[in-house]
Every structure is written in C-alpha cells, then in structure tokens.
Amino acid sequence: MNNKRITVKNMTDKEYFFGHKACAGCGGSLAVRLALKVFGDRTFAALPAGCMSAVGFIYPQMAFLNNAIISTFPGTGSMLSGMRAGLDALGIKDTHVVGFAGDGGTADIGLQALSGAIDREEKIIYICYDNEAYMNTGVQKSSLTPYGARTTTSPAGENLPGSVMHKKNLFEIVAAHDIAYAATASVGYPQDYLNKLSKAALVEGTSYIHIYATCPTGWGTPTETSVSLAKEAVDSGLWYLAEYENGEFTLNRRPKEFFPVKEHLLKQGRFKHLKDSDIRIIEEARDKKWKRMLEHWK
C-alpha cells in the first residue's frame, strides 16, 4: 500500500465492481467503484442488504473482482470485525476489510453493530453511501432522509411536506466514539473522496467515510446530473465536506456563498412539492448547522 496521492489521472484502470445491475447514474455504485480502485486486490468487502448487494451478487453473476460477502442487514460492523479477526488470526497480512452500507443499513438498523466495531477500534474501513432513503426496497424514509423529501413512506400532501424530520447527524455520532478517522464526502467531489479513501487506507484503527450519493431513481433526477447534483448539494450547504481526526473536526470546503437551496431542491422530483415556507425551514437548519461548524471546526 503506497502513500502516493491517487488522482483521477493516475488511478488504476483495473475495475473491481462492474457488470452489476445498478441503475444508470447511481451514486452508490460510483462510491464503491472508486473506493475499490484505491483499496485494491487485497480487499475483503462486506455489504449488507441494500442497493449495492442487491445489484452485485446475483448468482451466478458476481460483480466484485475482490473478495466480497453480503452481511446481514444489521450486521455489517460485526461481520467486518469477524473478518478482520479471522484474517489476523490466520496471519493473512496487508489486507483491507471494508464495509459498504447504505444510509438505512448504517444509521438505522446497522448503527449498533457499527458502534460496536468503532468502539473495538477494529482495523476496518466503513463506507456509508448515503442516498437518503431505503432505495433498494423502493424509496422509503430512513433517518438520513432530509426534511421535506417525498418518499413512499413520507408522502407529501396537504398535511405533510414529505419527511418532517431532519437528517440524523451520523458523522458527528460516529466521531463521538473518538474514532481514528472519519470523513464526509460527496460523489460530486471525487478528488476529495479519493484523498479521504487514501487516508482511510493508512489508518491504524477504524475509519468511516460518509459519502453523499445521488440516486436518480429515488430522487427523481436525470441520470446525467448525478455528479453535478452531488456537487451542488455541497455548494448549497445542505451537505458538507469534513474530517474528524485526533479529536478535531476540520471543514474541507467553505463555500463563500451558498448555491441557492431552492434552485437545487426543485431540480429533484422528491422536493418538487416544497413550499417557500419549507425551503425556509431547510435554510434555517442549514444556517444553524454551518454557524456551529464555522465556530467550532477548523
């Protein structure tokens, strides 16, 4: 494992995740693909029930070049622990043990196992591809679904604006374990993601990357805007690029002025119904969050 900065220009041509059945424009599959290009052949991956396991392991057509296994839905963190323990006990060296789980598999049903794995300081890398709902089962609300998003279990109508809850603050929940390394990323900022993957690969302990991953199918967006939308989410301040290490938070990107929230949201089918009053609620929540981040984070 080398320390050289991996860029889009020098990254390997080798593909580790291909031939899968993910939707066109899937941000999650892009997050997995790039990560494996950084982690390489000696990667043992576990993926719980969710989009990437559903599209990548349909017998007999397996989409991973490296070793990979579907874990139970709640058990990604603990299966990774078992894999790491097994590899270490067998003396199999220089391996990456990596989890790829969606927002539901991470922030909801898998949170207990993730917390346990971080607490044990396992040498594992956990990547949450956050497409902001249970997409594999057909777009149901998760605790990472943002305010105002229409899902099939948070319908928008006369009485409700879609999801009435804001996104669970998972990045800081993970950081509160005093994890060795945690970061947020976006498929709209691939170099930032590659840097963080490279860093995670070298961490002696647990690392966690929470990557914002577009879902054209669930969000009602054109497939060709997946990258630009994920970039815009950061530029509008609704998502942020940050790191946690050595007990400190760092903001990696501070937009001088935010991309207009309304313009960003109304490009997405899931937010089309939002009233100006809803947009204001979203902006206020964003501003509160950014005030805190700018005051307390590096």
């Binding site: 139970t72 299966m79 622990s81 199999i92 346990g116």
Partner: peptide, 23 residues
C-alpha cells in the same frame, strides 16, 4: 481473537465473518 460484541446478533455475525475467511 476474542471479540467483545455488542449483541447476540453481532456474535453470530462476527462468527460468520471469521468463518467466511476460513477461520
């Protein structure tokens, strides 16, 4: 390797992780 898991669900999940790499 003795893993202090956080639940029985994870006890089985970790055992499966170990078994899946041949341990």
């Amino acid at each position: 390797r003795y893993i202090h898991v956080e639940s029985e669900h994870s006890a089985m999940s970790a055992a499966m992780g170990a078994s899946s790499v041949g341990a």
